[in-house]
Amino acid sequence: MTAQAQATTIIDVGKLVGSVEHYRNEGYRLVQIGCTKVGDTYEINYSFDKDYHFENIRIVVSADTEVPSISGMYWNSFIYENEMHDLFGIQVRGMNIDFKGTLFRTSVKYPFSQPPVTVTKGDKP
């Protein structure tokens, strides 16, 4: 099995738009935007691919930081950004299609921003 090289660069929120623009000009395609809650902060991964070469940039933000949208460069990013907003409660500024929290209608607001559940095995529902 061959492990794929996966370079992850951590950047500031302010430099996000510039870095994404660089990838766009280089002809990369947007693979995914994914959010991870680590402690009280959120890691947001932007993954790009060009000819099977995978690159990843990461911003680390707090819950109340407003993240700029990259839909100006990648039109398809709205689907991930809305997902991020609906499930994690990250505010994204300037989305081209803003569902305003209606892409995923969940009974718990921002379910993925809730603290992780701890399980003791053998618990019965």
């Binding site: 995923f104 209608r105 379910p111 993925f112």
Partner: peptide, 13 residues
């Protein structure tokens, strides 16, 4: 205008 979310199951959680 697409909209999904009818059968979201929260597997990732």
């Amino acid at each position: 205008i697409p909209s999904i979310g009818y059968i979201h199951r929260g597997f990732e959680k």
